[in-house]
Each structure stands twice: as structure tokens, then as C-alpha cells.
Design a protein around this nucleic acid. Structure first.
Length: 633
RNA sequence: GGGCCAGUAGCUCAGCUGGAUAGAGCACCUCCCUUCUAAGGAGGCGGUCAAAGGUUCGAAUCCUUUCUGGCUCACCA
């Protein structure tokens, strides 16, 4: 419709305006609620060209268009805005064509290039938490939205299964796990604890123990006792302690933090963990066995969580397998002069010309860092999927800088596809003021499993209170509670613009009224119940549309362009808001107009077909968010 | 200190390729179930769009500066 008008204006530009106008001058917007019309053209941009008042310009353009286009039933001009009223026949024909199209809004399947969407990417040393929920829901949804846009999509993750942090939980388990009467240390089997939770318990334990040890070391230093520490350490710490003299509180805090870091690195626990990492890289059999065992506990736990989340992956990558390729790439780049080596043997890239810093890509002992492994993973993926056009990394915005650098390095290494890679950067999920930050090590996280369980419980309570669940089997009821609870949680985390942070208050559990998942699900269930009662639907003859019906049709017509926008912007939030808007329009209609009870059969059928298509789009849009909708609730 | 992001109603958020009187939900106050699911609908209350300049016929939206908050600049990931 917009395109038709635009086309006519452009093609008749000379006749209308005296010379060719720029396409950008043609701006449409929604007609204000209190003004008559369905579509509005902004007249101001043409006023200069036409050299007349906005009112005259609007009149001129309006009459010209109304003459040429029969879907324009009438028009009016109000203070620089030309408002068109679109004919009922046009909207009814829209309804018919939407109704016929089962995949309404979707682009042709596999018509666009393959993209890879990376999301989740957990560390195998702790369970998933609320932040991971946002990540997983976002990544899954963006992948689905891209599919709807015609892309082939590969869902993937990089499992962070190696590194010093993994060794920490391994070491802590080996050292601090109690031994039972059978002489076994704690396992998921003999404790009944979920695997990832058990591993996470020892990650926290490591942190606790080594903080204790670090404190003891600092106390020693403060007594000026530097026995058993290297001269370098002693000199540095002495210098730091001396520098505290005469400084203000904040500065002293900063210096103390530095001293603490040094102390942590001097703990026997940390040294043992480092040693374990070296053993692991050397494939020491005992260390490897422990690593495999504890990782497998984690994976078993993750599987349960992923299943509850309703997300899936096409292909997994493991850091333990890609970091070597990364190291090779760095050494290759070193030969080419892209990287440089410092005296201590560490390898860096100089990005100061790009306004960034120097960045480490390989440690002095030759081991890989985060960046090394990410380089390897990216290249690995392109060799696995040669037709890949780009990778979308769903990772929190705290890593904005990392990805800027990653893409830049890939480009410098000569990979053209680097420019098609993007970072789907999302805001942190924060706890309300005073509740601190979520930190796994400190045990201040909102656990993913617990949260999902809680929300499903509260959905159960609400559904038993007011739902329509008579005649359902226990199994069906449980499915429904789950569907409502998870729908609420997903919608809550996806309706916010990805790049914005979310403040989550665990004490006020998630709202299920208002702009929420269940609100949308409820409307869907209500429509389904209507349709079920109506029996067979037939086509309708010529009818007159009410305002409420036109509003819905206008909104429905925009679904395809919304899917395109959501795809372009990698934003499920756009779809969530669109659906919310649609549901509000429908509820208003439902409340004020008879549907089943309408006596005129054509009208009844038209309203039922309209309802059926609203349900279809609700279902479709919610599915793109990873949310299911019920037939009854 | 450098870089990036955010600041809209008491709270949580839309709106941001410049367009008409800035919109929702929650909370608070009124109404509406002998019409199809009230997890709903209608209405009310509530705003110096962080602040100040600038560009423009027109600025929450663009530019500059300032303030506030977050993240980041690690031989952590």
C-alpha cells in the first residue's frame, strides 16, 4: 500500500511537483487515533518544492492519489498531514490473503545465506544462572527469527571446558570433598546432587579457601614477614605498602586490592591449580580422567536445564579442541608480521592505529588466552561450514571490546567474512540496588533451575485458581503450568530491548498480569475456544468493517515487515511488543463486538476468520520467541 | 584517565531512519461478568523525556558540552 503510493508519487513527480523528488521525502506514519484515516503522509517535505501552504499541498497530492488509487476511499488534510482512509474492500482482501497463507509473514525458506548463531556458551565449572537464561532465550529467538527471514541457521555454542577456572573446581573437589563410608568422594550419584551444581559447589569452595589463604599471606606481609616469597614479590609488595602513606581512603582501597591480587597468586592453592592446568595441557592421564569425569557431570546437569529452557543446538564446539588451532593461527600471523613478540616471549597485536590498545594473544609460556581460542573457533567454524555468511555471537555487553578486537584481528589475518560477523550484545541482568551483583563465586546468583521451577509453581497456583482446566489429565495440566510459567519468564526477558540492562527482583517474582506472556497466551486460548464452538468456518460475503476490525487488520498486515525488522535488528523485543499491541487491539474488539452471537452469518464468519488469523499470528510470533501458546487455559 | 552503553510517569518499559496533544503495564481510584474464557475490558490519577546550548518550519529522537549509573581498557574468561 505504502509502496503503491510511493511508486505513483515518484512516477508522476514532474507533473505533480515540477521536478523529480527524492524518495526520502515520502514519509508515512500511522494516523493519529483522534484523526480520521488509516495511513498518513507527511506533507511538510513537499511544501518547499510546491511553494504553497501545507493545506494546499496536501489537497493537491491527496486528490491526485485518490484519483489514481481505488483503495483510497477518502482523504483529509490536517495541519500538514494528509490522512488517507483505505476502503473496506481493500482490508477484506487483505484478510482473505492472510487467511490463505499458512506461513504468513515468513520469507521463502532457505532463500537467504546461512548464518551461525552462537549462544549459551557456558563454563563447565558452575551451573547456569539468570544471566544465562537471557542469553539462551535471546540466542534461540534470534535464530528462529532469522529462519523466518529465509536464512539457513546453524545454532551453536562454544563450551568453555578448559582453563584455570575449570582446574579450580577440579582441585577443590579432589582436596575438600568429604569421603563417605565406601571411601568415595562426592559424586552426583552418591549425593543425588545435580552434576553442574556439584561442580559449582567446589568452584565456590575453591574461592573460599583461597581467600582464606590470601588473607593469611597479607597478614604476614603486614608484619613485614617476606620469608618464602621471591625478591620480586617482596619488593613490589613493600613498595605498594609504602605507597599507602598519606593517601585517601579510595586510593588505599585500590592499593589493597592490588596487594590482594598478588597474595592470591602466591597461595599454594592457586599454584596447585596452575600446575594442574599444565598437567592437563600435557595430557596427564589422571588429570584428564578427573577433567572428563567432572565435565560429564556438568553436561548431564546442563542437559536437564536446556531441556527445561526449550533451547537446542545443531553443533557444539569445545574450547579444548579449538584452542590449538588458535595457537597455530597466532604463530602463522607472527610469521606474517601481523603480531609481534615481546622479550618475555608473549605475543601481541598492536591496534593503537585503530584507536585501541595492544592486545595479548599468547602468554609468555605459550599457552592460549581467551582471544586465541576465539580465533581458532571462528576459523574452525568456517571450515566446517564453507557456505557460512556470518556468525552472530550472543554474548553480554561486558565483552563489547573483546569482540571489536576479535573481528579486527580476523580481518587482519585476511578473513573477509570477518566483516559479516556481529556481536549480539545484550545488557546484564542486575539485581535491585543493595542486593549486589550476581557472582557465581560468591554464591549470589539467581539459579536458572530454581527460577524456572519457582515460576512454573506460581503459574500452577494461578491456573488452579482461575483457569479452565476441567477435564484435563494430570499430564496435560502439568504441561500447561509449564507452558504458562516458561512463557511468562521468556516474555519477561525478551520484551526488553536486548541492549538494555534488566533489573530483576527475585523477591517480587515475575508478574503474570498486564504486559506479560500469559496475557498473550490467554487471548490465544480464548480465540481457540471461540473457534472450537463455531464449528466449520466458511467464507463470507461483502460486509462492512467496524473501526475495531480495521484496526486489527491494519496491524496484522504489518506482520511481515515486523519479522524483517526483528531480523535486521536481531531484536525479539520488537516481536514481543508487536504481539502485545495486537492482543490489546483484539481484546478491545472482543469485548465490544459480538462474534459467535452475531446473527448475520457473513459478519459472524468474517469475525471468526479475523479471530482465527489473530490466533495464527500470535502463535507464530510467540514461537519465534520460543514461547508456546495453549488451546485452553 | 581513554573507549563503549544507558538515563522517558512512583516502579518496569515502548516510542529514537526528526513530524500532530510523549504511550503501555504495574501500583492507586471508579466502573463492566443473564455476550462468546474477567489471566479480560472502559475510564481516572501520574511527565521540566537527566541538564544546558545548538541545527531545523518542527527535537524525547540529530550535534556539542555537562551530570549520573553501568561495562571495559588483565599473561581472567
Amino acid at each position: 500500500m505504502e509502496n503503491k503510493i510511493k511508486e505513483i508519487l515518484l512516477n508522476n513527480s514532474i507533473e505533480l511537483f515540477g521536478n523529480q523528488v527524492d524518495e526520502k521525502l515520502i514519509q508515512f506514519q500511522k494516523t493519529r487515533k483522534d484523526v480520521e484515516g488509516d495511513l498518513t503522509l507527511v506533507i511538510f517535505p513537499f511544501v518547499k518544492v510546491l511553494r504553497c501552504s501545507p493545506a494546499d499541498a496536501g489537497e493537491k497530492i491527496g486528490s491526485f492519489l485518490a484519483d489514481k488509487l481505488d483503495f483510497i476511499a477518502s482523504y483529509n488534510v490536517v495541519s500538514g498531514f494528509l490522512n488517507f482512509t483505505i476502503s473496506g474492500e481493500y482490508w477484506l482482501s487483505q484478510l482473505s490473503s492472510i487467511d490463505k497463507n499458512e506461513e504468513f509473514g515468513f520469507a521463502e525458506k532457505d532463500s537467504k545465506p546461512t548464518v551461525m548463531v552462537e549462544y549459551s556458551s557456558p563454563n563447565t565449572n558452575k551451573p547456569l544462572h539468570l544471566g544465562h537464561l537471557r542469553n539462551n532465550f535471546l540466542g534461540y529467538s534470534v535464530a528462529e527469527i532469522l529462519k523466518a527471514n529465509g536464512h539457513k541457521v546453524v545454532k551453536t555454542q562454544i563450551v568453555n571446558d578448559r582453563g584455570i577456572h575449570i582446574c579450580k573446581s577440579m582441585l577443590a573437589w579432589e582436596r575438600f570433598s568429604p569421603v563417605n563410608e565406601n571411601g568415595e568422594r562426592e559424586t552426583p550419584d552418591n549425593t543425588g546432587i545435580k552434576g553442574d551444581k556439584l561442580v559449582g559447589k567446589y568452584y565456590v569452595e575453591f574461592d573460599k579457601q583461597y581467600n582464606i589463604e590470601a588473607k593469611e599471606i597479607i597478614a604476614k606481609w603486614e608484619r613485614n614477614n617476606f620469608d618464602s616469597f621471591s625478591d620480586d614479590v617482596a619488593t613490589e609488595v613493600k613498595k605498594l605498602i609504602a605507597s599507602k602513606e598519606g593517601k585517601d581512603e579510595d586510593a588505599i582501597k585500590g592499593i589493597d586490592a592490588k596487594i590482594k591480587d598478588i597474595a592470591k597468586n602466591q597461595t599454594s592453592l592457586m599454584n596447585d591449580a596452575k600446575e594442574m592446568l599444565i598437567k592437563w595441557e600435557a595430557r596427564d592421564p589422571e588429570t584428564y580422567l578427573l577433567w572428563t569425569t567432572m565435565n560429564n557431570w556438568c553436561y548431564a546437569g546442563f542437559d536437564v536445564t536446556y531441556k527445561a529452557m526449550g533451547v537446542d543446538f545443531d553443533k557444539l564446539y569445545y574450547e579444548s579442541e579449538t584452542f590449538i588451532l588458535g595457537r597455530d593461527l597466532v604463530l602463522e600471523g607472527l610469521d606474517k608480521g601481523i603480531f609481534f613478540k615481546k622479550d618475555d616471549g608473549s605475543v601481541w597485536i598492536d591496534l593503537t592505529d585503530e584507536g585501541l590498545d595492544e592486545k595479548l594473544v599468547l602468554r609468555s609460556d605459550g599457552t592460549a588466552v581467551y582471544m586465541t581460542q576465539d580465533l581458532g573457533t571462528a576459523v574452525d567454524r568456517y571450515s566446517d561450514y564453507p557456505d557460512l555468511s556470518g556468525i552472530i555471537y550472543t554474548v553480554g555487553n561486558e565483552q563489547d571490546y573483546h569482540f571489536k578486537v576479535l573481528f579486527l584481528i580476523l580481518e587482519k589475518l585476511g578473513y573477509d567474512w570477518a566483516k559479516n560477523c556481529s556481536h549480539l550484545s545484550y545488557g546484564m541482568v542486575e539485581l535491585p540496588k543493595g542486593m549486589g551483583r550476581m557472582k557465581s563465586r560468591e554464591g549470589t546468583v539467581v539459579d536458572a533451575d530454581d527460577l524456572m521451577e519457582d515460576i512454573v509453581d506460581s503459574a500452577k497456583e494461578m491456573t488452579q485458581e482461575r483457569g479452565h482446566i476441567d477435564g484435563m489429565s494430570e499430564d496435560e495440566k502439568d504441561k500447561l503450568y509449564n507452558l504458562i510459567g516458561m512463557g511468562g519468564l521468556k516474555y519477561y526477558l525478551l520484551k526488553v530491548d536486548p541492549k538494555k540492562k534488566i533489573v530483576f527482583n527475585p523477591n517480587e517474582s515475575i508478574e503474570l498480569n498486564g504486559n506479560t506472556g500469559p496475557f498473550i497466551q490467554y487471548t490465544h486460548a480464548r480465540i481457540k475456544s471461540l473457534i472450537a464452538k463455531a464449528g466449520e468456518l466458511s467464507m463470507f460475503g461483502d460486509v462492512e468493517l467496524k473501526l475495531e476490525e480495521t484496526e486489527i487488520l491494519k496491524h496484522l498486515s504489518q506482520y511481515p515487515s515486523l519479522i524483517a525488522d526483528a531480523g535486521k535488528n536481531h531484536s525479539p523485543a520488537l516481536l514481543a511488543n508487536y504481539t502485545y499491541e495486537l492482543v490489546k487491539l483484539y481484546n478491545h474488539f472482543y469485548q465490544s463486538i459480538y462474534i459467535l452471537n452475531e446473527e448475520n452469518k457473513d459478519l459472524r464468519m468474517m469475525r471468526l476468520v479475523l479471530s482465527r488469523n489473530v490466533a495464527k499470528v500470535i502463535n507464530s510470533a510467540m514461537n519465534l520467541l520460543g514461547i508456546n501458546v495453549p488451546e485452553k487455559m
